[in-house]
Design a binder for these strands. Structure first.
Lengths: 227, 227
DNA sequence: CAACAAGTGGAACGGCCTTCCCGTTTCTAT
DNA sequence: ATAGAAACGGGAAGGCCGTTCCACTTGTTG
């Protein structure tokens, strides 16, 4: 079919079949690299991983941000979904805690996603819109959870942002050596958000010192922090 | 004087006067850059900032770690001092909270120091020894604070490490736009550590959304996370 | 004050990254 | 089937980083 696919797809005119295939290969490669290494990987290495020339990558995604936006467009769906599910929970406080855990788990599962949420550079409207949408739902969730008396009155929406930043720090530091450490942080933060009588999931154990030490004496890269 | 200065100084033979001066200039420059940019800055830029040739820098500090160790050797004193002061506090719980705040404040005041504590690569024995020493004092502080009934029984020493990682994440993300955000995190973590009846300092306010947004849409570098 | 060792900065090199250009290949529409 | 457009990949140019080498300068010591 020659007519432009879905309106407002991404480019004006549809891509040729082989070009579209390469586009997918690039996205798959970037997804892989970002997930394990974080955003920070060079464009050249993405092209290498995808098995295409650097020029092809540039042609498809002019800037690093373009690529990141394309890669995480669908991941953002999961983010929005989590909000919807939390709002659907009959118990607002339970929905709240599950939401926090779900989002932080998404960060842990994909280092690039952790970077995107905390981000460190201007996002495209596509991502931004969905984030804003999710944020609105979260605001609603907060007010509901407060009315149950389980969420402290001084909790504000910005606390989620702070938590995401903190969680990204833990994930970046522990890497693959103590990958469950973030759960300890989240468990404690939930304690801090909860009123004294709120039900809480059990606090996850801290990783054994040896694992943490290994995580602390590891070579990293500027990345995360670095881009 | 020709005889070697203090035994086990750092090099075998004393440096010539001008060389020593350059060494200081390099250290001062690195201190400046690390504090604001984090460890991640290139060796070349340190040399540039110091006004010396790259060769001179290499001669004085063969590796990046050598330089970092030298820069933060004295900063580590402050770390050890904080432990001693906390132990000297007649109220162990008060000492505990002040210790946490002091260490996190040190991270906030010096981005490089935040990176060093969380670190991301092998430290020299000099730093490592002082950190271990401080850690021992912290263990003592924990048991004391638990006996007062103000520190939860399930708090473990590794929780400090987790907090330092989380705090580093917040500091890296908020940068200079919302530089007080870390206080909110620390305030909430203290809540999580405390038993219900423990006295707590008031929870610092979250930064206004505009500042946080600005912090979230900023260009960073690899760094930090990045090295 | 001389002479030697210690120290210096610039130049050159290799590695990695990005951007731009251009000759070649491959799709697609007729 | 074929011509023209679309897409390709490799290579050149330029930038930054870190390392090493070398001829020159400057302390230091007797």
């Amino acid at each position: 079919m020659t007519p432009p696919e879905a309106p407002g797809q991404q480019s004006e005119t549809a891509l040729r079949a082989d070009a579209e295939r390469n586009r997918e290969r690039i996205l798959a490669a970037a997804r892989r690299l970002y997930a394990t290494e974080g955003l920070g990987v060079s464009m050249a290495s993405v092209a290498r991983e995808a098995g295409v020339g650097k020029a092809t990558l540039s042609r498809r995604f002019a800037t690093r941000e373009d690529l990141i936006n394309a890669v995480f467009a669908d991941r953002m769906d999961g983010y929005a979904t989590a909000t919807a599910e939390a709002l659907a929970d009959p118990d607002p406080w339970h929905g709240f805690t599950r939401y926090i855990e779900a989002v932080c788990a998404m960060q842990a599962a994909d280092r690039g996603f952790a970077d995107v949420l905390v981000m460190t550079f201007p996002t495209a409207e596509a991502l931004e819109a969905r984030r804003a949408e999710s944020y609105q739902g979260f605001l609603e969730l907060i007010t509901r959870a407060k009315t149950t008396g389980h969420l402290r009155a001084d909790f504000v929406a910005e606390d989620l942002v702070v938590l995401l930043m903190a969680n990204a720090g833990v994930i970046a530091a522990t890497g693959h050596d103590a990958p469950e450490t973030w759960r300890r942080l989240v468990g404690q933060m939930l304690r801090a958000y909860a009123t004294p009588d709120a039900p809480l999931p059990p606090l996850p154990e801290a990783p054994p010192p040896t694992d943490l030490d290994r995580a602390m004496t590891r070579f990293g890269r500027p990345a995360t922090n670095e881009l």
